[in-house]
Amino acid sequence: MAAGDNPDRLTGEAAFAALCGVNPVERSSGKTQRRRLNRGGNRQANAALFRIALTRLRADPRTRAYVQRRTTEGRTKREILRCLKRYIAREIFKIVIGALSPTTT
């Protein structure tokens, strides 16, 4: 697990995304405004997010519709994959935090 033995150190969804290496970094030159994924972070977590994104591209109709919509907006495949990985990291963070919170009965 990317959070390690101390998942309480994660202050928010953005911190988890940075830990996984899927937080956007501004990469602009001149008039072109772009973002890329952070090259740092946990490489195994980043690879896991990549595999999840590829599986969703093949099997999930919602993801296919998202890719189709973003393609018509003029996004490249790389940009779409970056957005997907960040979205997946957001979902996983909610699951991790939900598992950490004590359940009251």
Rank of each mutant, 00 (worst) to 15 (best):
Y87P: 02
R39N: 11
T32I: 15
Q68V: 03
Y87C: 10
G41D: 04
P102V: 01
R86H: 08
N46G: 10
R34Q: 10
L81G: 04
E79W: 08
P7W: 01
G12S: 06
E26V: 15
T105D: 08
C83M: 13
R64K: 14
D8T: 13
K85R: 14
R43A: 13
S28N: 13
T55A: 14
T103N: 04
N38H: 04
R62K: 12
T11K: 15
A14I: 13
R39T: 12
T105R: 07
I97E: 11
N46I: 01
G4Q: 09
D8N: 12
F93D: 06
S29T: 14
A47P: 01
R82G: 15
Q33W: 10
N42L: 08
I88H: 05
A45D: 01
P102Q: 04
A99H: 09
N6P: 00
P102S: 01
G4W: 09
P24S: 00
G12M: 01
R62A: 13
A47F: 01
Y87M: 14
C20F: 07
T71N: 07
R86N: 05
A89H: 03
P102L: 02
Y87L: 11
R43D: 05
I52W: 02
Y66H: 11
S28R: 12
N42K: 03
N46Y: 12
A89K: 02
A17K: 11
F50K: 14
P102Y: 05
R9H: 08
L81Y: 05
F16K: 01
I92L: 15
G12E: 01
S28F: 05
T32E: 09
R39Q: 13
T11G: 11
R34G: 04
E91S: 09
P61K: 15
I80T: 08
K77H: 15
A59E: 13
Y66C: 06
R86G: 02
G4I: 06
L49F: 06
I80S: 06
A3G: 07
N23R: 13
K31E: 09
L84V: 03
S28V: 04
S29R: 09
G40Y: 04
N46C: 15
L54Y: 05
C20I: 06
K31A: 06
T104M: 00
L49Y: 04
T72R: 14
S101F: 02
L81W: 03
L37E: 07
G41M: 03
E79D: 14
I92F: 05
Y87R: 14
Q68E: 12
T72I: 10
G4C: 07
L19N: 06
R62D: 14
L10S: 02
R69W: 07
G4K: 12
G21V: 02
S28A: 09
T104G: 00
